[in-house]
Computed example of a mutant assay.
Amino acid sequence: MFIRKSEKKGIITLGILTMALFVLPQTIHKSECPIFLIPYSRLSDTTQPVPLKHLVIELNSADSTTLIGVRGIGPYYAKKILRYREQLGGFHSTRQLGEIRFQYLNIDSLLPCFSVNPALIRKKELDTMSFKSVLHHPYLEYEDVQLIFNAKRKFGKINYSILESQKVLPPFKLKKIKPYFK
């Protein structure tokens, strides 16, 4: 009887598998560790990923990869958070995340995962800023910026204390922008 080369390989492979599955396990004692099996070992603490659920993330210093580690925040939402932080100059409260429009995410349930260090806010000098750059701040509208620059023309220079003392803006607006301007 003639056996093809491919059939011969199949017969040999079948024999090896049969031996590995049925014969070898009976010959190896339970106390011995078989050569072809990897024994169970614990990973060291440095190789195990740390779940970010239990960590509190500081919003003013977090990068996108850290934010993505929070359940529910993907690359799109992480980019939105970082862009808003850049527009503001930094977060002074975790509640400011609620000002960002998240379509499919309830950010209120994630607020305990975040913290804020107000010392990391980049305060800007109103006197050196252009109309356009002040207009990019999320808390100021076009009319507010016009009032600020009219006061700058009137007083020669402008800063937060002048805005407050001369009541250039309404008190609620002044309270909102206080952490962001010198």
Rank of each mutant, 00 (worst) to 15 (best):
L97G: 04
P112V: 04
G74Y: 04
I100N: 01
E164Y: 12
E143M: 10
N150R: 14
Y76I: 11
F155Q: 05
Q146N: 12
K152E: 09
L110T: 04
E58L: 00
K123N: 10
C113Q: 15
G74R: 02
I148F: 08
P118Y: 12
E141T: 10
L67I: 07
L111G: 03
L126F: 06
S130V: 07
I100D: 06
K80Y: 04
T94D: 03
L88D: 02
S64W: 07
D63V: 00
P112K: 00
R153Q: 15
L147W: 04
E125S: 15
K80D: 07
E86A: 05
E125Q: 14
N159K: 02
F114K: 01
E125I: 08
L126G: 07
L120H: 08
A151E: 14
D63F: 08
R85E: 02
K79Y: 10
E99R: 10
A78K: 03
K132C: 04
Y160I: 05
F149Q: 00
Q96T: 02
H137I: 09
G74I: 02
K132R: 14
K80V: 03
D63N: 15
V116K: 01
T65A: 02
E143V: 09
L105D: 05
Y142T: 11
R71K: 14
L163K: 03
K123D: 04
F149D: 01
N60Q: 01
T66G: 00
K132Y: 13
I73D: 07
E99T: 02
Q96D: 00
V70R: 06
S133K: 14
E125D: 15
R122E: 15
N60F: 01
Y76M: 05
L110E: 05
L82Q: 06
L82Y: 09
K154N: 12
M129N: 06
Y84P: 06
R85W: 04
G98H: 05
R153S: 14
I107R: 01
S161L: 13
I148D: 09
L147D: 12
G74F: 06
N150Q: 15
I73F: 06
K80N: 11
I81M: 09
Y139H: 15
Y104M: 11
V116D: 04
Q146L: 15
T128R: 11
F149P: 06
E141L: 13
A62W: 10
G156K: 01
L111I: 08
L88P: 08
R101C: 05
R83V: 10
H92E: 14
N117V: 00
I68P: 07
A119P: 03
F131S: 00
S161E: 15
Y76H: 08
Y104A: 12
S64P: 01
P118N: 09
F155L: 10
Y160E: 03
V116R: 01
G74W: 04
A119D: 15
K132V: 13
I158K: 07
